Amino acid sequence: MQLPVQRFRVTRADLIRYAGASGDFNPIHWSDRFAARVGLPGVIAHGMFTMALAGRAVAEWAGGADAVIEYSVRFARPVVVPDDDEGAEVEVTGVVKGRTDDGLTRIDVSAVCAGEKVLSQARALVRVRD
């Protein structure tokens, strides 16, 4: 079963707020000059922020954050966030892959930005509310 697509807009303002909340002020998340100097295509979103967006989709599909039992990802590519009003869009989809013996639901999650997969091996185990 395919789960509904969820889209998340990521702007530079979001990166600033996330940096403040997480304490991660690495200049690759706010300085185009620094990002270019280290070989990145531009300012990139924090990996954990990208993971959190996909986790938010999982929680919504499951009926709440407390329904998420396990969640894991690998980072495939960074989300490049341009310095404009549009930012970047991360599209999250999911496929139900089955149920465990104890009634938990397995979900394979996909997150894509600009046509590129940004998370790989993203999986969740959730307790779906009836």
Rank of each mutant, 00 (worst) to 15 (best):
Gln2Asn: 13
Gln2Tyr: 09
Pro4Met: 08
Gln6Ser: 12
Arg7His: 03
Arg7Glu: 14
Phe8Trp: 03
Arg9Met: 11
Arg9Ser: 05
Thr11Asp: 04
Thr11Tyr: 11
Asp14Tyr: 04
Asp14Val: 01
Ile16Asn: 03
Ile16Cys: 05
Ala19Lys: 06
Ala19Cys: 11
Ala21Tyr: 02
Ala21Ser: 13
Ser22Asp: 10
Ser22Ile: 08
Ser22Leu: 09
Asp24Glu: 09
Ile28Met: 08
His29Asp: 07
Trp30Asp: 14
Arg33Gln: 12
Phe34Thr: 14
Ala36Pro: 00
Ala36Ile: 07
Ala36Gly: 14
Arg37Met: 12
Val38Tyr: 04
Val43Pro: 15
Val43Tyr: 05
His46Gln: 07
His46Thr: 05
Phe49Val: 03
Phe49Arg: 07
Met51Phe: 01
Met51Trp: 06
Ala52Val: 03
Arg56Cys: 04
Ala57Trp: 03
Ala59Gly: 15
Trp61His: 12
Trp61Cys: 05
Ala62Asn: 10
Gly63Trp: 09
Asp66Ile: 11
Ala67His: 15
Ala67Val: 10
Val68Gln: 07
Arg74Lys: 12
Phe75Asn: 07
Phe75Met: 10
Val79Ile: 08
Val79Asp: 01
Asp83Arg: 09
Gly87Cys: 00
Gly87Glu: 00
Ala88Gly: 03
Val90Asn: 01
Gly94Ile: 14
Arg99Ile: 07
Arg99Leu: 14
Asp102Phe: 11
Arg106Gln: 06
Asp108Asn: 13
Val109Trp: 00
Ser110Arg: 06
Cys113Gln: 10
Gln121Ile: 00
Gln121Gly: 15
Val126Asn: 04
Arg129Leu: 14
Asp130Tyr: 06
